[in-house]
C-alpha cells in the first residue's frame, strides 16, 4: 500500500543526492582538492522541481495516482486510524514549526550580496581627460603582428609589476593577496571571463577600476585600482594583449 509513497521518497532522495554530491564530486575531479558545493539557494529550487517532477511522474497515470494518494487517504480519512492520524498531524506541524523557527531565529549568517559580474559597459568613457567610444574602440597593438611577441611581453612586465598580487602568477585570480578581497580577483584563465569580452570592455574595466563600475557591479566593494592613475593608455593595451596571449583566449568580437 505504501509502495508508491516509498517510491516517491526514494526517487526524490536519489535525485537529490545525485545533485548534492555529484556536482561537487565532478568539481573535485576538475579541480583537485576542492569541493565546490551547490549553493543552498539554488539547491532549494532544484529540489522543488525534482519533487514536482517525481509527483508528476507518479500521478499522470490514474491508478498510480490513486495508489500514491491511498496511504494519505488512509491516514487522514480512515476513522479507525485516529491515533496514527494524530501522530502524523503532530509530526508535520512540528516540522513546519521547526522550519519556521530556523528562519526567524537570529542568525549571524552574512547577508548574501550580489553583483553583476559583467555589467553593461557605457558607450563612451572618459579617461586621461579624453573621451573614448567603447563601441568602436579596438586594441591598437592587436594588428601589429610583427611586434606581437614584444608587445605581449611588455604587457606581461606591466602585469607583473602591477597586477599579479591579486590576479596571480598563473592569471587564475589567486595572487597572494586574493583572499583578502571580496569580490575575489577575476580569474582570466576561466572561459567565463575575458574570453567572453571585447577588448574595449577590458580597457574600460582596467582604466576606471572598481570605482568606475556601475551600481549593479557594486563599485564600493571592488578593490580594482583606477589604473588610469598609474598606467598609460599604451600600457593598458599591452596588458590586455598579454592577458589574451598568456591564457590562450581570444577576445570577443562582434560582426
Amino acid at each position: 500500500m505504501m509502495k508508491k509513497l516509498i517510491q516517491a521518497v526514494i526517487l526524490i532522495l536519489v535525485f537529490y543526492l545525485i545533485l548534492k554530491l555529484g556536482i561537487p564530486a565532478l568539481g573535485s575531479f576538475l579541480h583537485h582538492g576542492t569541493w565546490p558545493v551547490v549553493p543552498t539557494n539554488l539547491m532549494r529550487i532544484y529540489v522543488f522541481f525534482i519533487v514536482a517532477g517525481v509527483l508528476l511522474y507518479l500521478t499522470f497515470n490514474e491508478e498510480s495516482a490513486k495508489e500514491l494518494g491511498k496511504p494519505i487517504k488512509e491516514v487522514y480519512g480512515n476513522p479507525e486510524k485516529g491515533g496514527l492520524r494524530m501522530i502524523v498531524i503532530a509530526v508535520i506541524a512540528l516540522f513546519g514549526g521547526y522550519i519556521t523557527y530556523q528562519n526567524v531565529k537570529p542568525s549571524f549568517e552574512a547577508p548574501v550580496e550580489l553583483r553583476s559580474i559583467h555589467p553593461a559597459p557605457p558607450s563612451s568613457v572618459e579617461m586621461w581627460g579624453k573621451p573614448y567610444n567603447l563601441l568602436k574602440l579596438t586594441n591598437p597593438f592587436r594588428e601589429d603582428k610583427a611586434n606581437f611577441e614584444k608587445n605581449a611581453r611588455e604587457g606581461g612586465i606591466v602585469f607583473f609589476k602591477n597586477c599579479f598580487y591579486c590576479h596571480g602568477d598563473k592569471l587564475d585570480g589567486k595572487g597572494h593577496y586574493n583572499s583578502g578581497f571580496s569580490p575575489m580577483p577575476a580569474n582570466f584563465v576561466d572561459v567565463g571571463t575575458i574570453a567572453q569580452l571585447q577588448e574595449s570592455f577590458l580597457f574600460w574595466r582596467i582604466g576606471t577600476g572598481g570605482p568606475g563600475l556601475p551600481k549593479e557591479g557594486a563599485p564600493w566593494r571592488s578593490a580594482m585600482p583606477i589604473w588610469q592613475h598609474f598606467l598609460s593608455e599604451e600600457e593598458i593595451w599591452k596588458v590586455i594583449l598579454f592577458l589574451y596571449d598568456y591564457t590562450g583566449h581570444s577576445p570577443r568580437t562582434f560582426g
Binding site: V112, L114, K215, E216
Partner: peptide
Amino acid sequence: YGIPQVIPEA
C-alpha cells in the same frame, strides 16, 4: 524572494 533584487543604475 527567489532571486536577488538588483537595483538598476539610475
